[in-house]
Amino acid sequence: MEIGWTGDAELVHAVGRVFRSTGAAAAVAVITPQGGLTATVGADHHSTFEIGSISKALTGMLYRDATERSLVSQTTILRDLLPLEGHGKVGSVRLSSLSIHRSGLPGLPPGMHALRRTVDFWFRGQNPYGDSLADLLEQTRNVRVGSARPRYSNLGFQLLGHAVAQGAATSYERLLHEVLGEGFSTPIRADDLGPMDLTGFSRFGRPLPAWVGEGLAPAGGVRATIGTMRGFLSSILDGSARGLSALEPVSKYSSRVGIGAGWITLEFQGRAITWHNGSTGGFSSWIGLDRDAGVGVVVLAAMHGSVDRQGFRLLTEFAASRRSAIVSR
Rank of each mutant, 00 (worst) to 15 (best):
F283R: 02
A272H: 12
S279P: 05
F268D: 10
T265V: 09
N277P: 05
T274M: 03
A302I: 06
G296H: 04
T265F: 00
I273K: 01
R271L: 06
G270T: 03
N277W: 01
G288Q: 09
F268H: 10
D290V: 09
S284P: 09
S285V: 10
G270R: 04
G294S: 14
D290P: 12
W263N: 09
T274L: 03
I259W: 08
L300E: 11
W275N: 05
G281S: 13
V295G: 13
G270D: 01
F268S: 14
E267V: 13
V307G: 10
G288F: 03
A293L: 13
G281E: 11
I259F: 05
D308M: 09
V295Y: 08
G294T: 12
W263F: 11
I264K: 05
R271S: 10
Q269M: 05
I287D: 06
G281N: 12
L300T: 04
H304E: 15
G262N: 04
L266G: 08
I273N: 04
V297A: 07
D290S: 12
T280N: 06
V298M: 00
R291A: 15
D292H: 12
S284V: 11
Q269Y: 05
V299D: 00
G281Y: 07
L289V: 10
W263D: 07
A293V: 03
W275Y: 13
G305M: 05
D308A: 14
Q269N: 08
I264L: 13
G305D: 09
G288K: 09
G294W: 13
N277Y: 01
W286N: 02
V307T: 08
I273W: 03
D308L: 06
A261N: 14
R291T: 14
G262T: 06
G278R: 08
H304R: 13
T265C: 03
V299H: 00
G282V: 03
D292P: 04
W263I: 04
H304N: 15
W286D: 03
G278V: 13
D292C: 09
R291W: 04
N277D: 14
M303T: 07
G288V: 12
I264W: 01
S284A: 15
F268T: 01
L289F: 15
G281P: 12
I259P: 05
D290R: 07
S284G: 15
S284I: 01
A261E: 08
S279A: 13
G260Y: 01
